[in-house]
Design a binder for these strands. Structure first.
Length: 771
RNA sequence: GCCGCGGUGGCGGAAUUGGUAGACGCGCAGGACUCAAAAUCCUGUAUGGGCAACCAUGUGAGGGUUCGAUUCCCUCCCGCGGCACCA
């Protein structure tokens, strides 16, 4: 008979809640352990089957740490601002606030049904005014420090969402959210100067324990290049010669003798035209056309190069030759100086361009970088690919940006005591084609007075991106109900940094980078105690549909967690999702696999039901149980949850026919606790033990039992396994050799041959080399 | 194109510093129990040959190092993720 999971899971969840055992304490004798999962976006679709993968894994770690005597903080909350909720609200003519509360209630119920050991008393919600008050306050710190600035510049505009997107939110020229077309538009946007932190975001990666691939991806994204800026004097037709110059950026100053022409970006050409350059009509046309299209679009049109001769001539600073200056859109306005020296001999792109427009290609005697830079009066410099963060959205469901525009004083911060600037309820949530947020229509709200002079002023109507609230939520968990500060200094000092953070790979260059930056800024301002927020970062792979492709609503290949939990139980889901494959890899869902794990749990339950206390260890191999539990314990540390589960299965296969003592069974149940906490407690109670499994100490493993006095090693003849021998791992070669040569199977292969050599690795192998 | 990761039975996947390849689970086959089915239990299950003992082959392909290679090196093929005209 399968055990009644519905009954026992509810029972233990109620007991845990009543006991308050998962509440973290802000201080005390115990060592702290802050364990964090990326808080979910409470979508209307309910929990995705992939969520439990991350949450279960860290739940296992959190529970183990409690057993080990740590004061564990494992919190949960809701990243609830964002487009899907807003779109849903628009479609169903409902308030996003209400929809959010409903979705949160569903998520909360679902997460609780999985038995996670979250500290629910610290639950946060980014859309709660008491939360976003501090998001706004932090934005103002950026503003006051000069790191938040408004800038009119081409932004990525999604035609369907009617919203400006950050570069990170545009994938292959399409909107990351809806897949719709994007175009470039000039829009006044709030920007945050993350590029000022580029170097530190890069350098400090050396001091944190992240999976190497995460570090690599962040390094590539930041994209540091060391090079030099070199000036070229220009002769512009119709202007006094030698008056103008252009600065190019190059990482290969050593190739300067191969530079046969210069190329400027359309953006730079536009600036020159704006300050009075009378450019040929062909140039004007080209520039106008190029700038009307997004950079993405320009790049997407393939490697076919386009460009126009500007008729300007530059003087090569090293050899004095006159070389032409072209404008071409393969040079980016947003990187370096927007101008390059073209070295076709060396650079593939320059070569393609030179060949297409029949520009000269010169051999290049290479010179030392330092000499060149000095000789031509250049300047060594460093450039990054990282761009500043586009921080405003023209949508309703986000944190209002707490600034006011006054004609006299320009942008003025809303005073702290007036925070939060509460998101007003509006008639219509629909975004507008004018590019303004729906808040702009709320004239009563928009029109206000200037905090500085009391004169008439207007509120900023853009809202923040949903990366804002998630950039600091780990700080709020530390002191979730504080209304004097986002968190108290003492508590921050106690809990930070986060000891272990797990999340999705898709956030590596978004949330993970933003929140590192945000924390560093707060650190510089003296508000948080550590420069890096996360000491250790892991990531999990996707749970794919059973056909190996991504689960999606449109394909209808998803799995409903509620259904699985109702039918097979939370413990089965928890343990299966850990067992299904390596934690970091994407793995297809398999219902049969889950059923197999459930079978195992039933076996455990039956074993405990039938268990009769034994005063001796009846296991065939001494120390088998200790070694299994030690392996599981170690596997948790290295995130090898799949082999930890298989070790449980092997262990039960071994003890099924044996007697074990009460102490042994208790150890098993404690180690099982983090994986299948409901069943472990039920069994604990069944064998007459009091209290909760969670209150027990993690077992100590007897070092003597971990070492086997006799093991099986293979005997090879010429590298092929022919037999095995039972021998002490410390046995000397003579003993091993004697045993091996006595083996009939070995003798058979040695017959008539000469032994040339014997390789013996104690505890591993004995190889007889013959000829 | 560049960066990163990977390729192992019918399937998901195991395999210490190079040391018996295929743990564990799924699936499948046979058997027990049952009037029967489900559930459960037992046995088998890389491939080829053999009743079997056993023999040979085998971790994407080819080469190399080594007593010994899934593991290390070289060349190549394929898949996944990221970046993508970043000078």
């Amino acid at each position: 008979m399968p055990y009644n999971h519905q009954e026992i899971e509810k029972k233990w969840q109620d007991r845990w809640e009543a006991s308050g055992i998962f509440h973290a304490h802000d201080g005390g004798e115990k060592q702290k352990f802050y364990c964090l999962i990326e808080f979910p976006y409470p979508s209307g679709a309910g929990l995705h089957i992939g969520h439990p993968r991350s949450y279960t894994a860290l739940d296992v770690v959190a529970r183990k740490r409690r057993h080990q005597g740590y004061n564990v903080l494992y919190p949960i909350g809701w990243d609830a601002f964002g487009l899907p909720t807003e779109n849903y609200a628009i479609k169903h003519k409902r308030k996003p606030q209400e929809v959010t509360l409903e979705n949160v209630a569903t998520f909360r119920r679902q997460l609780q049904s999985l038995g996670f050991s979250f500290d629910w008393s610290r639950e946060v919600n980014t859309t709660d005014p008491s939360y976003y008050k501090w998001t706004q306050w932090m934005f103002l710190q950026f503003f006051k420090a000069g790191l938040a600035y408004k800038s009119k510049q081409p932004i990525n505009w999604c035609l369907s969402c009617k919203i400006g997107l950050a570069n990170e939110e545009v994938v292959n020229g399409k909107c990351e959210r809806c897949g719709g077309e994007t175009e470039k538009r000039d829009k006044e946007q709030w920007m945050i100067a993350i590029t000022k932190y580029a170097e530190r975001l890069l350098e400090d990666l050396d001091g944190v324990d992240y999976l190497e691939k995460i570090k690599t991806q962040q390094r590539n994204w930041i994209g540091k290049s060391e090079g030099a800026e070199i000036d070229f004097v220009l002769n512009v037709p119709g202007q006094e010669s030698g008056k103008q110059k252009v600065t190019v950026f190059t990482t290969r100053a050593d190739t300067i003798f191969g530079a046969t022409f210069l190329v400027i970006s359309p953006e730079v050409a536009k600036q020159w035209i704006d300050v009075g350059w009378v450019a040929p009509a062909s140039v004007r046309e080209y520039v106008q056309e190029a700038l009307s299209r997004a950079e993405m679009e320009r790049a997407a049109e393939g490697k076919e190069k386009t460009g126009v001769d500007t008729q300007i001539v530059a003087i090569h600073p090293a050899n004095g030759k006159a070389i032409p200056v072209w404008v071409a859109d393969y040079v980016l306005g947003s990187y370096g100086t927007g101008a390059i020296m073209a070295v076709p001999q060396h650079d593939e792109r320059d070569r393609a361009f030179a060949e297409q427009f029949r520009l000269p290609i010169a051999d290049e005697p290479l010179a030392a970088v330092d000499e060149v830079v000095e000789k031509v009066g250049g300047k060594k410099t460093v450039k990054y690919k990282l761009r500043d963060w586009v921080f405003s959205r023209q949508r309703y469901w986000g944190e209002p940006i707490p600034l006011v525009w006054c004609e006299k004083h320009q942008w003025v911060a809303v005073p702290d005591e007036q925070l939060p600037v509460v998101l007003p309820e509006v008639e219509k949530y629909e975004p507008t084609d004018t590019g303004e947020s729906p808040l702009a229509a709320m004239t009563d709200w928009v029109n206000t007075t200037c905090p500085t002079c009391g004169g008439p002023a207007r509120r900023e109507t853009d809202t923040m991106p949903n990366w804002a609230g998630s950039s600091w939520y780990f700080l709020r968990y530390i002191d979730a109900h504080n209304d004097q500060a986002f968190a108290s200094r003492d508590k921050l000092k106690y809990w930070m940094p986060v000891d272990l953070y797990n999340g999705g790979n898709e956030h590596t260059t978004l949330h993970l980078l933003y929140s590192r930056f945000w924390n560093k800024f707060l650190f510089d301002q003296g508000h948080v105690p550590t420069s890096e927020p996360y000491a250790r970062r892991h990531s999990h792979g996707l749970v794919l549909a059973s056909d190996g492709i991504k689960m999606s609503k449109s394909k209808g290949n998803g799995v409903d967690p509620d259904e699985i939990i109702t039918q097979y139980g939370a413990d089965a889901l928890r343990m299966y999702i850990l067992f299904m494959g390596p934690f970091e890899e994407p793995v297809p869902w398999s219902l049969n696999g889950l059923i197999g794990v459930r079978r195992f749990l039933d076996k455990v339950e039956r074993y405990v039901q039938a268990w009769v206390p034994s005063d001796h260890d009846g296991l065939s191999g001494a120390g088998l149980l200790e070694r299994s539990l030690k392996k599981i314990s170690d596997d948790i540390e290295s995130f090898k949850f799949n082999t930890a589960v298989s070790a449980f299965m092997s262990l039960f296969n071994a003890i099924a026919v044996s007697h074990i003592t009460r102490e042994q069974l208790k150890k098993i149940l404690v180690v099982l606790g983090p994986f299948a906490p409901h069943l472990a407690n039920e069994c604990w109670e069944k064998i007459g033990e009091g209290g909760l499994v969670e209150e027990q100490a993690w077992p100590e493993f007897d070092a003597r039992l971990l070492v086997q006095d006799e093991i099986e090693i293979a005997v090879q003849v010429n590298g092929k396994a022919r037999a095995t021998i039972q021998i002490s791992p410390n046995a000397d070669e003579a003993a091993a050799k004697q045993l091996a040569l006595a083996q009939e199977k070995v003798q058979k292969h040695l017959e008539g041959r000469e032994i040339v050599q014997i390789i013996y690795v104690p505890g591993r192998i004995l190889n007889i080399v013959i000829k």
